[in-house]
Amino acid sequence: MTAIRLTVNGTEHLLDVEGPVSLLNLLRERLGLTGAKNACRQGECGSCTVLLDGEPVCSCLVMAADADGSEIITVEGLAGPEGGLHPVQQALHDKGAVQCGYCTTGIVMSAVHLLERNPTPTAEEVKEALAGNLCRCTGYGAIVRALAAPETATDGEAP
């Protein structure tokens, strides 16, 4: 049994962790935060992406005990300027970039991290930032078009 301290979406939690529990399972099963999804348990698909001390990680690959003392942001912790959708969420919703939605929250977290560092990414930069997020429904085009700065969103145009 290990006692760990985590700040999740601004709230501090003291938690006892027994055995090899992943951060993903901790979030979903102990804290009831279902936004991060389990799809492969091996860090291949990015559906479980959260921000750990500001960096996107696959929460299925992080042991909860190793996250002791860190700050976690999940999709539930995002909000826009007036408490509504985060601009990344709004853009994906407006541009038809969500189909089944299972990968979406992970993509949102990767995109939030990108746009914090680069507010006007090119289509190529969006693709690189999302290279660790698998989506089986959209073919990514609508996602890239929603997130890339308009003048660089060449995806969908002739090469």
Binding site: H93, V98, V108
Partner: peptide, 20 residues
């Protein structure tokens, strides 16, 4: 826009595996 889009994009517990 999708009628279920907001629930999906905010990570609401809407999938079968989210039921606890």
């Amino acid at each position: 826009r999708k009628v279920d889009g907001l629930a999906l994009i905010t990570g609401r517990p809407v999938f079968a595996g989210d039921l606890d």
